[in-house]
Simulated assay, not measured.
Amino acid sequence: MIRPLLIAVALSALAGCASTPSTPRSSAAVAPYRDSVDLNGRIAINYSRDGKKESLNGTFSWHQSQANTDVNLISPTGQTVAVINVTPRSATLTESGKPPRTAPDLDTLTAQTLGWTLPVSGLRDWLQGYATDSEGKRFVASPANDNVITRDGWKLEYMSWQDESAKVPQPKRIDVTRIALGQAVEDMQIRIVIYPADQ
């Protein structure tokens, strides 16, 4: 249960880890925020717990409406291993062959399942290039303004873009690092590669 949930919440919002060749930076702002988004992607998570390094990989589909977010997690062999549904009133994790697990929100669900909180409620914004910075101000990513530390202690680095020369580029690869996790997990890095749902 812990492994699929960790991938899910690292998403609920999000890898191929190949680096992208450096290209000249544009000053264009990220595409406007959308309430409804359909994306697919890959994710890699590296973390340490009790001095032991762990690594997880998988793919996902992300369906977001104004109120709800649905995430399907797919194993490297192509099987759906977990489905997460987040609404304004609850977050539910469903794994194959197991009863659904529900909590009032995603952060509470992670605390109940993992034993420690993984605050990822900002991922609806992060996948589109938006965040709330450490001072509570709205951050808008662009190829020229590509990193921020969020209010809840995550460092976001927008490493590449779907089309960096576009007037309003959309994020392609995001590297996420937890600045301070607390006692249970010593460090965590997440790499997300995003591509449109039709790919």
Rank of each mutant, 00 (worst) to 15 (best):
K172W: 06
Q162R: 13
S19H: 05
K172R: 15
I194C: 06
N68C: 01
L114P: 00
E135S: 15
V185N: 01
K137V: 08
S26Q: 08
G136F: 05
M1K: 15
G97R: 05
D163S: 10
Q66L: 06
P143F: 00
W126D: 08
Y33F: 15
W161Y: 08
A91E: 04
A144E: 04
V148R: 04
T80G: 12
A180N: 13
I74R: 11
L11M: 09
A15Y: 03
A180T: 12
T94S: 15
Q183L: 07
F60G: 11
A13Q: 09
R138Q: 10
T150H: 10
E95Y: 06
V193L: 11
I179Y: 04
V168S: 15
G41M: 09
D146W: 01
R3Y: 07
I149A: 03
K137H: 13
V185Y: 03
A15P: 14
A197G: 01
V37L: 11
N147K: 14
L14F: 12
Q170C: 03
E95D: 00
V148L: 08
I190F: 02
Q199A: 09
G136I: 12
R42S: 04
G41Q: 08
Q66A: 08
P88N: 01
T150I: 12
N40V: 04
G129H: 09
S19N: 10
V86I: 15
A180Y: 08
T108H: 07
I149G: 00
D125C: 03
N68I: 09
G136C: 10
P76S: 07
V83E: 13
N46G: 15
A29G: 13
V83Q: 12
P24R: 10
P169E: 07
I7E: 06
I43R: 07
W116H: 03
R151Q: 10
E164S: 14
S160R: 10
K137W: 02
V81Y: 01
N85A: 07
V168A: 14
L6A: 08
Q128F: 04
D152H: 07
T59E: 03
A67G: 01
A180I: 05
G41E: 07
P4S: 07
A144F: 01
A67S: 09
T132G: 01
I45L: 15
P24I: 09
R42H: 06
I43M: 09
I194D: 00
F139H: 02
D198N: 11
P21N: 08
I149Y: 03
S65L: 02
L5N: 05
P143N: 08
K52G: 03
D146G: 02
S61K: 12
D163T: 12
V193I: 01
R101C: 04
G97Y: 11
A28E: 11
Q183N: 14
A18R: 10
L106S: 13
K52W: 05
W62C: 02
A166E: 05
L73M: 15
A184S: 14
V71H: 01
N40H: 12
Q112S: 13
Q66H: 06
I45W: 10
K167F: 09
A67H: 12
N147I: 08
R138K: 13
P169R: 06
A180M: 02
I190G: 00
A166Q: 11
G41L: 05
S142L: 02
R191A: 06
N46S: 11
M159Y: 00
A166Y: 12
M159S: 10
Q79D: 07
A29L: 11
I149P: 00
V30L: 04
A44Q: 14
L127D: 06
N46Q: 13
L181M: 15
D187E: 11
S48C: 03
E95A: 03
V30I: 11
